[in-house]
Computed example of a mutant assay.
Amino acid sequence: MKLKKNKRKKRIFLWVFLLLLLATLLGGGYYWYKGNQNPRNLVAGEAFPATKDAHKMTAKEMKAFKQKEVDETQFTLTIFPEATFNQETLAGNLYIKNEPVNAYPINVKVNLDSDKSLVYESGMIQPGYEITKAKLAKKLTAGTYKATANVEIYDNKTKQKRGTTQAVVTIQVNE
């Protein structure tokens, strides 16, 4: 009986020892694997080369380069998603910016989502221009309205519409 208990204790001890050994090996392997994931920084033998023939572009050259670099297929628009207006004066804060990197002027029409009625139209906004103050085109009762800003993109040369995009706007009308 004692021999059986002794044998059983040895077997349990062996299993515990093997599990601890396995856990240690797995932990060490994981630590080694994670430590070798990031590439080591290489240090070059020589210092940064000295400037030889390069010169800084003039402001005129930079402007010409940036203008040439404008990608006519891309458009960046900034519209703050919340606009606040006064119920009596219809005046308020609405932020729309036609980024200077754009090639095209825009016109923004804001329509209420509920009935599609026009509540604001910006008129032409050239690249690099912005609107911060606006006046509603129609009187609204005090409250919060969901609206859509329909942005019309125009070609400066042909004056033809090139495309449209939209942005969600929440209009808050205060008493």
Rank of each mutant, 00 (worst) to 15 (best):
I153Q: 06
T165Y: 01
T141F: 07
N174I: 15
I171W: 02
R40M: 15
W32C: 11
K5M: 07
T73S: 12
D71G: 02
Y30M: 08
E69W: 01
K56R: 07
S114E: 11
I106C: 05
R162D: 03
K133D: 12
K157R: 06
G27A: 12
A44C: 05
E46Q: 11
N111K: 14
K34Y: 15
P39E: 15
V173L: 02
F85C: 00
A134R: 03
K4N: 08
K157S: 09
A91Q: 14
V169H: 00
L77E: 03
W32M: 15
Y129S: 05
L20H: 04
T51I: 15
G143L: 06
T24Y: 15
Y31A: 13
V70A: 01
M124V: 12
A44D: 13
A59T: 09
F75Y: 03
G27R: 10
L136M: 09
A103E: 05
A137I: 06
P127T: 01
L136F: 00
E152G: 10
K161D: 05
F80C: 06
E121I: 08
P105D: 09
K66M: 01
G28Q: 08
L19S: 00
G28N: 07
N98V: 02
R11D: 09
E72H: 09
A50C: 07
K146C: 05
A103V: 02
Y129K: 10
T89R: 01
A103Y: 02
N111S: 13
N6V: 09
T141G: 14
Q87V: 00
F80N: 03
E72Q: 08
R8F: 10
W32R: 14
V43A: 06
D155W: 00
I171V: 08
G27F: 11
N38A: 11
V119K: 05
Y104L: 03
V173E: 00
P127Q: 08
Q160A: 14
D115G: 11
A147E: 01
F48P: 07
R162L: 13
D155C: 03
E69L: 12
F17D: 00
K9A: 12
N156W: 06
E121L: 04
T165I: 09
E72Y: 03
F80M: 07
Y154N: 02
T78S: 13
M124G: 04
L22W: 09
I96C: 00
Q172W: 05
G143V: 04
Y30N: 00
Y104D: 14
A134K: 03
A47Q: 08
A23N: 09
V169N: 02
F17T: 02
A149K: 11
E69H: 06
T132R: 11
A54Q: 12
Y120V: 02
K109M: 08
E130T: 04
T170N: 01
Q74W: 01
K109G: 05
P127V: 01
S114I: 10
Y104E: 01
F17W: 13
K157V: 00
L94E: 04
E175D: 15
Q87Y: 00
V110T: 08
G35S: 12
K133Y: 01
K34G: 05
P81T: 03
E46V: 10
N107V: 15
L77Y: 07
P105Y: 13
P39T: 11
I96H: 05
K2V: 03
K138P: 00
L112M: 14
L18E: 03
Q160R: 14
G92N: 07
F13Q: 08
F17Y: 10
K5T: 04
K109V: 14
A50S: 12
Y120M: 05
